[in-house]
Design a protein around this nucleic acid. Structure first.
Length: 431
RNA sequence: GGAGAGAUGUCUGAGUGGCUGAAGGAGCACGCUUGGAAAGCGUGUGAACUCGUAAGGGUUCCGAGGGUUCGAAUCCCUCUCUCUCCGCCA
């Protein structure tokens, strides 16, 4: 959520920043414009209501005193009957106004940081650096490799659940599990993240805290008969671990890594990546989450991005880092670096991790605050990033490690550092 | 799923209609004391919104929502969650 005081004080500045995401966000009818109009109304009604309540409170006190002293309070009582009714009415109005105002605020996206490049979509993202030497030879798509080796079964996934689900068999299943352990170990043991294991279901408040709701309900799987949803990312439960808490400044930074399955309806992605494991309704991911002092949001983001990249380097997978442009960063993000891994079959880099700073946007929504000594509580800054998406990592391992042996048989060489996690397996061959 | 008990501030815990934003204790901060620390003593210590340049003021908040009342932490209703017992179950 945007800072409501800043919204008043620096209206022009914020509007300018927001417009960098797209003019439509600040024009008439936008949540921004709505909030602007409602703010004045909201405060006005509140002031009226509070004045009346103040009167009611003081006279009520007087009545109490008079009664105690055995004096006659019938005059006050008569007057207060009316004031009480009035006050109740006004109070309802004030609450409604406040609610409408916060509803509008909740739909306003975060302001992009000035270091976020201008742009309309992913074509305007800016490459920051590359690592590794991409292989340029012909490599079959992972679904062909997987089927040739008998380890990826998309038909079974479709039969069991529908499109965009898959079944892993044998070495692929083992690889999925091994990757998860490998990533968690590295973050927990080398990068200083405390591992947590959290529910894969979250309620409405929790999803509002990180920004998925109220705007993106269609992207979530809702549970019937409950006001709860399957999580689209571990960011949601892990960040909200500290929902409505006031931390000590000395507690920061807080770093957590977590594995969870992730569930996404992919409502707006019809026709994209329909084959293979790139875009699934259910996928596994190891997530990194940090709660930091607002002054350290961007330095923390650099560091966190490095932690995610370290996994790719350990797996010898070529990648690049991309600074997302204003048109491509997510709703809650202040700034985002994507890690894109080389997929030789597609001859391009594909997103495998998205690392974002949210500044205090989520901290304000979720009520995650910290206090320095006796000072006023202040919203924490939050960061998170995939470290990494496991399914996509599996795809990258299959394609980048693919080879044909002298007899023309497919096989996949497992990156050395991963081998201890898959029972010492060095090479996947057809079973 | 059935029966019962409960939900109060950072924690613990009192409070059954006005004097309660909330006793007592712990914790924390500051001061005194000390060579230093501990103990002891003293003082202070919730949040959100809002008015104000500020000093300072107002409103709301005792799980959530509604109701009764001039007035609700306290009475009534609904819901959520926690605990205990029973049932069921990985």
């Amino acid at each position: 959520m945007i800072d409501r005081k800043a919204f008043r004080k620096d209206f022009e500045g914020m509007q300018k920043a927001l417009a960098r995401r797209g003019e439509a966000l600040v024009t008439e009818g936008s949540a921004w414009a709505r909030a602007h109009a409602l703010d004045v109304v909201q405060r006005d009604v509140k002031a009226q209501s509070e004045a009346l309540q103040a009167e009611r409170n003081s006279v009520s006190k007087l009545i109490g005193q008079k009664k105690k002293n055995g004096e006659d309070a019938s005059e006050e009582l008569a007057r207060m009957g009316e004031v009480g009714k009035q006050s109740k009415l006004l109070d309802a109005q004030a609450r409604e106004a406040e609610l409408a105002f916060t509803d509008a605020l909740l739909e306003i996206p975060n302001m992009p940081h000035e270091s976020v490049p201008d742009g309309a979509d992913e074509d305007d993202n800016i490459e920051i650096r590359r690592w590794g030497e991409p292989r340029r030879d012909e490599v079959p798509a992972h679904w062909d490799i997987g089927e040739a080796l008998g380890i990826l079964d998309f038909e079974a996934g479709a039969k069991l659940a529908g499109s965009r689900f898959s079944v892993l068999r044998g070495a692929a299943a083992r690889l999925e599990r091994g990757l998860m352990q490998f990533m968690l170990d590295m973050h927990a043991d080398q990068h200083g993240y405390e591992e947590v294991w959290v529910p894969a279901i979250a309620n409405r408040k929790t999803l509002t805290g990180t920004g998925q709701l109220p705007k993106f309900e269609d992207d979530l799987y809702a549970l019937e008969g409950e006001d709860a949803f399957l999580i689209p990312t571990a960011e949601v439960p892990v960040t909200n671990l500290y929902q409505d808490e006031i931390l000590n400044a000395s507690d920061l930074p807080i770093r957590h890594c977590a594995y969870t399955p992730c569930f996404r309806r992919e409502a707006g992605s019809a026709g994209r990546d329909t084959r293979g494991m790139i875009r699934q309704h259910q996928f596994d991911k190891v997530e990194l989450v940090q709660l930091v002092h607002p002054d350290h949001a961007l330095s923390g983001l650099d560091e966190l991005t490095g932690h995610a990249a370290a996994i790719l380097e350990a797996l010898e997978l070529p990648y690049r880092v991309v600074n997302l442009c204003t048109g491509d960063i997510g709703f809650s993000a202040q700034k985002t670096f994507d890690l894109e891994v080389w997929l030789p079959s597609q001859n391009c880099y594909r997103e495998i991790s998205s690392c974002s700073s949210f500044a205090q946007f989520q901290g304000r929504r979720a009520g995650i605050r910290f206090r320095t000594d006796g000072g006023k509580p202040e919203a924490v800054a939050t960061l998170n990033g995939s470290g990494l998406a496991i399914g996509r990592t599996l795809v990258a391992v299959l394609e980048n490690g693919w080879q044909l042996d002298e007899h023309g048989n497919d096989s996949v060489v497992i990156p050395e550092k991963l081998r201890p996690y898959v029972g010492g397996l060095e090479k996947i061959v057809k079973a």
